[in-house]
Amino acid sequence: MYQDQSRVDRYSNFKLLDSIFKDKSYNSYLIVGHRNADIDSVSASIILGLFLKKVFRVKKVTYVFPEGLSSKTIQILKYLRINPNYLYDISNEEIRKYQVAFFLDVGGSDVLGEAGAKILSSRDLIKILVDHHVKTSFIDRFNVSIVDTSASSTIEIILDIISRYSPLTWLKDKYMKLCILALYLETNFLRYATPYALKWITFLMREAGFKFSDIHKVIRAEASFSEKLAYLKALKRMRVYRGNSIILVITNVGAYLSQVSSILHRIGGDIILVYTDKKKQCRVNIRIKEELLQEHSIDVFRDLLKNMQEISYGGHKTLLNIEYKGKVSCRKFLERFISSFTNYLENALSTKFNEISI
């Protein structure tokens, strides 16, 4: 069994969390993920919920995923035959039936959705945040926060915490596989995996009898017709720019922004911007190679978002999701945003991006 108790003990608020776990008067928990929850948020939530029920015999655990799950997460859960019952929304009256609320992989209020915001606003709950990337001001809204920016995923932190109390003998193979897939995807196919993440993957793969070929079988499962159509539309509409040896790709689709940007990133794009410009839905997904950020010592998203208003956003150093809900039309917002983004890149990277034909 892989355990690293010393890492958990280094968390400054762990003793507070420990006292809550061991207080038997707390027997009703909410576990909240972010909007359109990804595999990291969902796996961390499911595993924490199982831990509370199996190890501490908590009677009532309810998952809340505002606006549901991402399409990739749904695909993985379906393959593993995991069907978590969860709420899209929750009333204030229902919230009052709970004592403790965990918020997992929720880096800021922008990604909470209405349901998450209601839970966070409740004065009757003990609120606990566990995350690997978070806005500093957001932490103050919680009674307990376990934030480890050196971790590569939230599921990594959750596994470290629960192994402090018990060997994972109660964890069925399908849930071990869920953790493996979450660790693998959240670390961008192990590219950004920490030594702790690698140790967890090694342990879980051995215990579950899960091979790398099995991982790729799941994540490369046949896309739906609408998803494949989105990929083809993105390729048809994309504009490609070159600045020195850096490739910038900009395209638009109606859905599957994250999947499209991931594919374009994997096949050669250094910087990917995918947007949708529907009247009632203005969203942007951006991916940037970490090597570029390190080479030029820049934090693109921090600098870019510094003075922006009327948007909600989430992500981390190399990935950003934006949703615009302002008064200006979506088209005008996108024109301004893309112009600001490319101007920033040209200044930060000391290059000029010119469109090229391919």
Rank of each mutant, 00 (worst) to 15 (best):
S261T: 15
N188E: 15
S163W: 03
F189C: 05
S163T: 06
Y175I: 01
G254N: 12
T169F: 00
L232V: 12
N188D: 14
F203A: 08
I263S: 10
K278E: 15
F212L: 09
S262A: 13
G209Y: 10
I271E: 01
Y231L: 12
V240C: 04
K211P: 06
R220N: 15
F203E: 15
V240L: 08
L190T: 14
T194G: 09
L190Q: 10
G269N: 00
A234G: 04
S245C: 07
T169C: 07
L190F: 11
Q259D: 14
V253K: 07
I272N: 05
A151M: 00
E222P: 00
S153D: 07
I158K: 00
K172A: 10
A151N: 04
L181F: 02
T202I: 11
K174H: 08
S213I: 03
E156L: 10
I219H: 09
D214A: 04
R206E: 13
I250L: 13
R283T: 07
T187H: 05
N285I: 06
N244P: 09
E156G: 12
K177W: 01
L171P: 00
R242F: 11
L159Q: 02
I161T: 08
A208F: 10
Y192F: 14
V260H: 03
H265G: 03
I201A: 06
L232F: 11
V249H: 11
S261Y: 05
A230C: 04
S245A: 13
K278S: 11
